[in-house]
Design a protein around this nucleic acid. Structure first.
Lengths: 337, 337
DNA sequence: GCGAACCGATGAACCGGGTAAGCACGTGAC
DNA sequence: GTCACGTGCTTACCCGGTTCATCGGTTCGC
């Protein structure tokens, strides 16, 4: 019932604790014969190194942390997180690392979690998401000396390595796609204005419109929920300068927009084209299927985990640029009416 | 830079390590005056108890584990997990407990994770999801002596406490709702047949149909993906005895079914009524909004976490029955054509 | 006035591994 | 024969917090 320890193994093998430790860690100091015998016993009684003991004598925590800082209600609908997590896991599982997850209500809470995790030695490092401009988390992890990797544009990451993709290029691609279809007036329903990547997309949106001589209302900022997306869409579609295409910052809002348009008697794509950011299975399930920007979110997660583990091992790492999101044209975009 | 320890505090306060330990844990053995002084110093130098050390001297791991055992690709679209996690977190955060999350590919992998977590002392217990009939995980955690709580019907949980809701009653409610609308032939697109709760819903479905004298094809089993849901729907709708209503085991499949019906020229709800299990924000965003079974998933998660923590504390706990899912009639169900 | 009880605090052992230092023994070189 | 050097293993201490036995000193009861 009680978990076996190296002392148990030592007793059964008739050697000392030290010898067992050497044997099980593949270090020199024991004969191959003894090593094999010790390993066999460890195997037999189902021994696992006690993490706490190992940690206490200087090893890492064997875990990395991820704090998700969005209101709980919206988490479920956002496939992003689970995809990211599964990507991170893929990298961790291979090394028997674990993932600590915490949902926080705000930045202060999140910072408190980081302090606690690091102070308690619970994690070897963290992955930071959804950075703001001048994000307070960056200086905090910096002063804590805690390894951290940012998922998002390096401009907000300060000295921390970032895993990012060129969202401006992706946005340009979307606008070019719409312009090629003859759209002259494009709307945008964005995420929270405070997020760094929202600002980047906003700027890229304006620039791309200007470069191609298109018109567009300034981005409507939302909290990523379908409800907010619906509201913003309603406002856009009932404005005097009604757009013929709308770009959404996530798929749930795009879907809500789709419904609102149909409700208002606008056929999609005949009367309105819709583009979603992040291509989840959702996009292919609805009618018409949503034109979407596909990026490999699990891959980003995996890459971030990889960087973080190397960083935690003391290596000095640089950020990585992932492939930009690719536009997947589907039935929700068509020539302008 | 180095993390302060109680020895540092002891030195600065001019007392022994033991006194510091008593003072900081609110245990008797020091005067209030000394306690205050020690606490002030701890506060000042930013001391946090090192988890490993605490763990090593007998305390719990301060974390519970959750292994999610569905293919990574499908995780994202299933709002269930994130809602569950946020509910669990709510309970844990208050007690400064942490959640260890791992995505596993199959039961063997999941069992390996449990063995490792328990062997390493990483978790104080686990929450088990998606039980099968004769689930191999139950005897494993049983022999490990690891506290565990099952989310799902007690019939599959063996001796483990379960957090569950009466899915049979919920299913009856759905069928009664449809029967009242005049539907005589009802289809069902279910989750994987191996899952215990799928079997329970299947049985309840058949029984309710029989009780009300309705017809129905046997449940079509899927992997919960939109794609599979679409396929199953197509088959149901092109069968000779086409149903006038279909009950889906999750919302993404219901949504896929909606699209398929429209594709085949069937208006929802005029030509086909659709009911989704689990009422995510998705259901309210689509047109027509989906009639759905709403259950409080975060609450279940919170309850499970609560039970598990009490169990880990050595208490003997019994399972809890949550409120049954409530049917939220919306635009996707209407009188039979 | 003496023992009992109690308070506040100490020192040391302990948890389960890691690891530096040391030791016995065998081997080879000179 | 002895000195140097490996090899294979043991001993002992470290990590940081918890806990128990103990102890000096004060207070209380009789």
């Amino acid at each position: 019932m009680k978990r076996p320890t190296i002392a148990d193994i030592a007793r059964r093998a008739g050697v000392s604790k030290g010898a067992v430790s050497y044997a099980l860690n593949g270090r020199p100091g024991v004969s191959e014969e003894t090593r094999a015998r010790i390993q066999a016993i460890a195997q037999e009684i189902g021994w696992r190194p006690n993490l706490a003991a190992r940690l206490l004598s200087g090893a890492g925590a064997g875990a990395i942390g991820l704090v998700v800082c969005r209101p709980a209600r919206f988490l479920g609908v956002e496939p992003f997180f689970m995809e990211l997590i599964s990507g991170i896991e893929g990298e961790l599982a291979a090394r028997s690392y674990a993932l600590m997850l915490q949902v926080a209500a705000g930045h202060e809470d999140e910072i408190a979690v980081h302090r606690r995790w690091w102070g308690e030695g619970r994690v070897d490092g963290v992955i930071l998401l959804d950075l703001h401009a001048d994000d307070p988390r960056v200086p905090v992890v910096e002063t804590l000396g805690m390894p951290a990797v940012v998922i998002g544009h390096p401009s907000a990451a300060g000295p921390l390595p970032a895993v990012w993709s060129d969202e401006a290029a992706a946005m340009r691609g979307v606008i070019e796609h719409l312009a090629a279809l003859g759209h002259r007036r494009v709307g945008r329903v964005a995420g929270p204005a405070a997020l760094a990547h929202t600002a980047i997309r906003d700027a890229a949106f304006e620039e791309a419109l200007a470069a191609l001589g298109l018109e567009g209302a300034p981005a409507a900022h939302t909290d990523y929920t379908g409800e907010a997306g619906a509201r913003a869409t309603r406002r856009l579609l009932s404005s005097r300068a009604r757009p013929t295409a709308i770009v959404y910052d996530n798929d749930i809002m795009a879907l809500a927009g789709l419904s609102v348009a149909q409700e208002m008697g606008l056929e999609v794509p005949a009367g309105l084209s819709v583009v979603a950011w992040d291509d989840s299975p959702l996009c292919q399930v609805v009618r018409p299927p949503l034109t979407a920007l596909a990026r490999d979110i699990p891959a980003s997660g995996a890459r971030a985990a990889q960087l973080l583990l190397r960083m935690a091992a003391g290596e000095r790492v640089a950020g990585v640029e992932d492939a930009a999101a690719r536009l997947r044209p589907r039935g929700s975009t068509a020539p302008a009416p």
